[in-house]
Design a protein around this nucleic acid. Structure first.
Lengths: 217, 217
DNA sequence: GCGCAATTTGTACAACTGTACAAATTGCGC
DNA sequence: GCGCAATTTGTACAGTTGTACAAATTGCGC
């Protein structure tokens, strides 16, 4: 009857989860948004947790693939500063922009990840732990090579802040608009990407500043 | 009977909300953690939303007061770079460290704020909008004065990233530990504060870099 | 267009939710 | 230690939750 109900259910699940979190969204909400019955969800996915797992994997795998692809390109840049910038873009852009135009969109899924990680939901945590992010380690290594002599702690913490900035930009964009008195549009995602990249570029670059500062002295 | 049940309820509410979010924690959970009955919550607070409001105001007011106090001290520093560093500390430290040792602790409350803002709960949003943060505007102004010529958009976005970094450091500290292979302790809050301050210091300072870079050229 | 498998619906279930309120208990001024 | 107000308990209520499953419907190979 439905033209691929299963896909619609998955899409609406991302949208609703990203908007209100995992707990606040009921299976009936998702069904209603898809114009379907509750039973269709248990039929297709078995349980709410398994639905989440499917949503998660559906987006995580292509996003990380895209990240690694862009990372590979970035690593061909010889100038350390330009490479650093490219690596950061390779990490951030796929989180904001969907590659295969079919799925719910990178930003929406990333927002969902942000909300889930905040909620600390056991189902979600198990899924995240399963899928844990060998990609992040590859990026960490690439970043380290751009800032020789930087302590590991500084690199790791800045990676954490990068992800936190990413998440919060998507979770609460209106704060940007309000704080600027309406001058800056927090929902401008292209601007957000550029700002995140520039800001974290400066923070990573400063880790190698001891040598650069001594050049100035 | 109880030695100030009301206080215990408020304390446990912060703890549970910060751990699992607003939706996932039932009034019965809070009551049970306090060794009390559900009815005591409706008696003392009337409703779940009003309980949250009380929790929120109880911590927000002293935290912002402390921030403004430290901001005042920072503003007496004449050197722009040193002042910038002090302003950032003035914003971050009260979010991690509780001032009046009675309440649940700055970090626990900040973690709760992070989770609530991610959940996008209507109750919480209304409360946050009410209490909105004239303090943040004062900080923005102070930061702007440290980086003359910096565009407003850059300042606002970096303020956003600062808060996002803060939140995510508290929401998911284990990621730091894992990503570093156990070398770096994500739960070391003193280290977290220092890293956040240093990283955002570099990101804000780079906004004025055009003039400084032209000095180098 | 028959027949069977895949899908969708409808409904039932026990568990849990926030809230309301009567009854029991407590603490304290006197 | 009486009496009254403040507090705490217990219970009831209607609504919602995830899950299970029989019945109805659909799609499709033949």
């Amino acid at each position: 009857m439905r033209p691929n109900l299963r896909e619609a259910l998955l899409r609406n699940a991302v949208t609703l989860f990203s908007r209100s979190g995992y707990n606040a969204v009921s299976l009936r909400d998702i069904a209603k948004a898809s114009g379907a019955n509750v039973g269709s969800l248990t039929y297709h996915f078995g349980s709410k947790a398994k639905l989440l797992r499917e949503v998660y994997e559906r987006h995580t795998v292509p996003m990380n693939a895209r990240r690694r692809e862009l990372l590979g390109e970035a690593l061909r840049i010889s100038d350390a500063d330009q490479r650093l910038m490219a690596i950061l873009r390779a990490y951030v852009v796929p989180a904001f922009v969907s590659s295969s135009e079919g799925d719910g969109g990178g930003a929406e899924f990333t927002r969902m990840r942000a909300v889930l990680s905040a909620e600390g939901n056991p189902d979600a945590q198990a899924i995240i732990a399963d899928a844990f992010d060998e990609t992040s380690r590859a990026f960490l290594k690439a970043l380290a090579d751009c800032v020789p002599g930087a302590p590991l702690s500084g690199l790791v913490w800045r990676s954490q802040f990068l992800l936190g900035s990413l998440y919060y930009a998507l979770i609460n964009p209106d704060r940007v608009t309000r704080l600027s008195g309406g001058t800056v549009d927090g929902n401008d995602r292209e601007a957000a990407v550029n700002q995140i990249v520039e800001a974290s570029y400066a923070s990573f670059r400063s880790l190698g500043v001891e040598t650069r500062q001594s050049e100035r002295a």
